[in-house]
Amino acid sequence: MKNYDSLVDALSDLKTRGFESDFAIETTCIYCGGLDLRLRPEEFMVEEVYRFEDDSTPDDSSILYAISSSAGVRGTLVDSYGAYSESLSFEMAQKLKMPTIRA
Rank of each mutant, 00 (worst) to 15 (best):
D60I: 02
R51V: 04
F52Q: 06
L35W: 00
L14H: 03
T16K: 14
L14T: 06
L64S: 09
F90G: 06
E43C: 02
R51H: 03
P58F: 05
F52A: 05
C32R: 03
R17I: 01
V46T: 06
S61V: 02
K15V: 11
S85Y: 13
V78E: 15
L77Q: 07
G82V: 10
E26K: 13
A71E: 12
S62G: 06
R40C: 03
Y81T: 10
D60Q: 09
M45Y: 02
D60S: 07
S62N: 01
R38H: 08
L14Q: 10
L11I: 09
D13V: 08
L14M: 13
V78P: 09
R74I: 01
G82R: 02
A24F: 07
T16Q: 13
D36M: 04
F90V: 12
L88M: 15
L88N: 01
S21L: 08
M92D: 12
L37T: 01
S62C: 12
S69N: 08
P41W: 03
S56C: 01
D13Q: 14
D13P: 02
K15A: 14
T57G: 01
Y84V: 02
D59I: 06
T57F: 06
L39T: 03
A83Y: 13
D79L: 09
T27K: 12
S89R: 11
D22W: 03
A71Q: 13
K95R: 15
F19W: 08
T16F: 00
I25A: 14
I63R: 13
T27R: 11
A71H: 09
A93F: 10
D13I: 09
Y50I: 02
S87L: 12
V49M: 07
S69L: 08
S85G: 15
C29L: 04
T28K: 09
S61P: 01
D54R: 05
R51F: 04
E53T: 09
I67T: 11
P58R: 05
F44S: 05
M92L: 15
A83E: 14
Q94W: 04
Y84Q: 12
S85V: 01
L64H: 08
M92N: 11
S69G: 13
S87M: 11
L35H: 05
M45G: 00
S80D: 12
S85C: 12
D59N: 07
E47G: 00
R74Q: 14
S70M: 09
E47W: 01
A66R: 04
S61K: 11
F23W: 09
K15R: 15
T76S: 14
I63M: 09
D22P: 00
A83H: 10
I30T: 06
D54G: 01
T76Y: 01
L96I: 01
A24T: 14
D55W: 03
L39M: 06
G18P: 05
Y50W: 12
S89D: 12
D22C: 04
E91I: 04
F19E: 08
S21C: 07
Y84P: 00
S87T: 14
G34N: 10
F23P: 05
L39E: 05
E48G: 00
S89C: 08
